[in-house]
Amino acid sequence: MAVLEIRDLHVSVETDQGTRQILRGVDLTICSGETHAIMGPNGSGKSTLAYTIAGHPRYTVDSGSITLDGADVLEMSVDERAKAGLFLAMQYPVEIPGVTVSNFLRTAKTAIEGTAPALRQWVGDVKTAMTNLKMDSSFTERNVNEGFSGGEKKRHEILQLELLKPQIAVLDETDSGLDVDALKIVSEGVNRAKENTGLGVLLITHYTRILRYIKPDFVHVFVAGKVAEQGGPELADRLEAEGYDRYVEATA
């Protein structure tokens, strides 16, 4: 049972126009097995929260804390966070020319586990996971994200999620750019991971449509760098009907 706790988190980023505050006191607690949807308008700081949890060097934590089972996540390097059980499914996965998916997945699994996986078992696991995500077997010989369609990139992220078996996953707009078929496939992958490993999910999205396939236990509305309102799944339905205008106007 893992617990990711975010307390009064303030984050800023350096821009050409100077320092810009983005997160202004975020409080969240995510436990194993729970699915939290973070919804909000563009520019509200959703992705900043995702990257900050993962440790992207662009973001500066000014105050507050992030802990995983009590351990200080902010003190960990990016790879240490992954080894501790955190996972970020990226909104824009980068291409890594010349590095095959097969080599990448094995290297990552070895890093996370501390030892190389037994070859036969590993090859079988990869194959099963790819079949589940309706990915062609030739995929493993392609270079990481190179020439991948939007849908392929997202499936590849979820493939990693299923194979690396983190405790808490942050999905940063995994639904963006997916057609309904791909959205279903990707959602099924997330649900499998929840079922198989008790994954805790922090699902960041702008739209409610992914929530038809991945059922949230909690919905947090993110506006201007903090949680403006939270509730159960019914809050998502209300957002679907009313949009974010109510919140944006309130802070304007």
Binding site: A54, G55, H56, P57, S77, V78, D79, R81, A82, K83, F87, L88, M90, P93, V94, I96, F104, T107, A108, A111, I112, Q160, L164
Partner: peptide, 8 residues
Amino acid sequence: FYLQARGI
């Protein structure tokens, strides 16, 4: 960053 975020 991408590779490190996978534990490498």
